[in-house]
Design a protein around this nucleic acid. Structure first.
Ligand code: SF4
Length: 358
DNA sequence: CTCCGGTATA
DNA sequence: TATACCGGAG
């Protein structure tokens, strides 16, 4: 790429960003703590959704010390609905670790950032450039899409050679005088103009330099990635009442939906009925043998490559029933219906909570 | 129901 | 290098 082109792309991008950037809440002060939280929330998550969670988070946890002082339960509740719950637990771990070592803030060093749980190459570069205005090039899905169109790249994004080419582009184009603005501008363009579907090339400041636009290959860039086909999973669970309280248990930390709460249950065995599966899972996970369960509702949700159909039942335990013997949970609680919403639930179980409350 | 998106781990 | 992790918009 000619130096003149590089310069033009930078200038056009920065001018566009200055005019059209979204007023995201961490963009007022660029406090490192704010940028860190926003970037972790932004992993695998659209920024529009992040903004709402971010504001609620900062209200509850205004700084690193507040995160460190908070119980994990409160952290997970603030994260409920964002998904990838390891991210929330990693924020907590990081805050604890930094405060323990006398740090007041997130480090401004690439290797130190990379060593923190939940921070990979993208997030480390994002924090350094956006919070500390240091010249680190970065590659996220937005940038990869913009670059693959700008250079009309005709090879799959996951190939190592393609990644190398994209990394080189990021390095060449980065405006080292204003990395904070430049990196954000690139990602913002990908989020607002150079979108995955129907990009607004007509309003794009880079159109005159865009190879894909010239070749009319925009719709085919980046090369589509083959998606996994969905696998069906059948599950069943039971909402168990003891007088006016409901039994819930907290999932093991390193499992899927780690640290979130749920009704006891699990995956059905081959050709097992939902009723039988619910009875069996409840027995395995708590030791309780229910004599009867009634149909509550069935909900469906999707995650990664699975389509989960969750059959919800409800049943009653005798007031003098023994304490549960947990085999799939770290702790349990007996909660009145109107307090269920205080606990973080996975999306599927949250649908059941919603049905119970209505 | 498809689509979108970084990190950790095997 | 492949796969697991998530939820909501559209
Ligand atoms: S012209 Fe279209 S495809 Fe090219 S960078 Fe701009 S929005 Fe993306």
């Amino acid at each position: 790429m000619h130096p003149h082109t590089v310069n033009e792309i930078r200038n056009r991008l920065l001018a566009w960003f200055a005019q059209y950037q979204r007023p995201l809440p961490w963009r007022t002060t660029y406090r490192p703590y704010h940028v860190w939280i926003a970037e972790i929330m932004g992993q695998q998550t659209q920024m529009e959704r992040v903004a709402m969670y971010f504001l609620r988070w900062i209200e509850q946890f205004p700084d690193l010390a507040a995160v460190a002082a908070a119980p994990e339960q409160k952290i997970l509740k603030a994260w409920e609905g964002l998904g990838y719950y390891t991210r929330a637990r990693n924020i907590h771990r990081t805050a604890l670790h930094l405060v323990d070592n006398g740090a007041m803030d997130i480090p401004a060093d690439y290797q130190q950032l990379l060593a923190l749980p939940g921070i990979g190459p993208y997030t480390a570069a994002a924090i350094l450039s956006i919070a500390f205005n240091q010249p680190y090039p970065l590659l996220d899905a937005n940038v990869e899409r913009v670059f693959s169109r700008l250079a009309d790249i005709d090879s799959p994004l996951k190939k190592a050679s393609t990644k190398k080419q994209l990394t080189a582009m990021a390095d060449t184009l980065l405006d080292r005088d204003q990395p904070r603005q430049f990196n954000q501008a690139l990602m913002e363009l990908g989020a607002l103009i150079c979108t995955p579907k129907r990009p607004a090339c007509i309003s794009c400041p880079l159109q005159v330099y865009c190879r894909a636009y010239q070749a009319d290959t925009v719709a085919y860039r980046p090369l589509p990635i083959a998606r996994d086909k969905k696998t069906d999973i059948l599950m069943a669970c039971g909402v168990l009442y003891k007088e006016d309280r409901i039994f819930i248990q907290q999932r093991l930390p390193d499992d899927i939906w780690g640290g979130l709460w749920e009704f006891p249950g699990g995956q059905l065995k081959e050709s097992e009925t939902p009723l039988h599966g619910a009875l069996r899972e409840i027995h395995e996970e708590t030791g309780w043998l229910l004599e009867r369960l009634d149909v509550l509702a069935t909900v469906t949700h999707y995650y990664t490559r699975y389509r989960v159909t969750l059959h919800g039942f409800y049943g009653t335990l005798h007031p003098s029933c023994p304490e549960p013997i947990l085999t799939a949970a770290s702790q349990y609680a007996w909660v009145p219906l109107n307090q269920l919403h205080q606990y973080p639930f996975p999306a599927g179980h949250r649908q059941l909570v919603h049905i119970l409350c209505s």
